[in-house]
């Protein structure tokens, strides 16, 4: 399905979801980039997965980006039935206590990847059934993938 159709189907239900235009000089694949408001993510995820016209049944990856002023989570979705792709971007304005709802109810594959976001970025995934650090030790201080993280010097520094 073309990107126009995906957008039309989605905007009929969520008028506040907008496409992210391609910046000049940038080359992108055939994915549709969508700007999803934080409050709409849980509902939108459900529709994206269950709507027969969209049928995004495969969540390829989830990640986060620290933009210094705010955080952003990125969801890369693939539909194996319609062979189309979409990238959801969710802006998290609150930098002191960032929170984003889980999508594990819709796509279980987000499980560990969301835990990784909590582990490395300190973005709390609300509703996650098992939100613990995954790569770092449980007693680690700070969130290393944040841009303002200062590494504790060790004996090699």
């Amino acid at each position: 399905m073309s990107s126009v159709n995906i957008l039309a189907l989605l905007q009929a239900k969520f008028p506040d979801i907008h496409p992210i235009p391609q910046p000049a000089g940038q080359t992108r694949g055939d994915e549709v980039y969508l700007d999803v408001p934080l409050a709409r993510l849980a509902e939108a995820a459900h529709v994206l997965q269950s709507d027969p016209g969209l049928a995004f049944n495969f969540l390829s990856f989830v990640t986060a980006v620290d933009w210094k002023t705010h955080f952003e989570t990125v969801y890369y979705l693939v539909s194996t039935t319609h062979r189309h792709k979409a990238v959801l971007k969710v802006k998290i304005e609150n930098r002191t206590t960032p929170e984003v709802p889980t999508v594990t109810h819709v796509w279980p594959s987000a499980d560990w990847q969301e835990r990784e976001i909590w582990d490395l970025f300190g973005i709390r995934i609300t509703g996650h059934y098992n939100l613990r650090r995954i790569l770092l030790p449980d007693n680690w201080e700070g969130y290393p993938m944040r841009k303002d993280y200062v590494a504790t010097p060790d004996r090699y520094d």
Partner: peptide, 18 residues
């Protein structure tokens, strides 16, 4: 400036770099 995603079929599955 911008973003890119490249992926391929690695022996263990879909390996991608964002």
């Amino acid at each position: 400036p911008g973003e890119g995603y490249g992926h391929l079929e690695a022996p263990r599955g879909d390996l991608g770099f964002y």
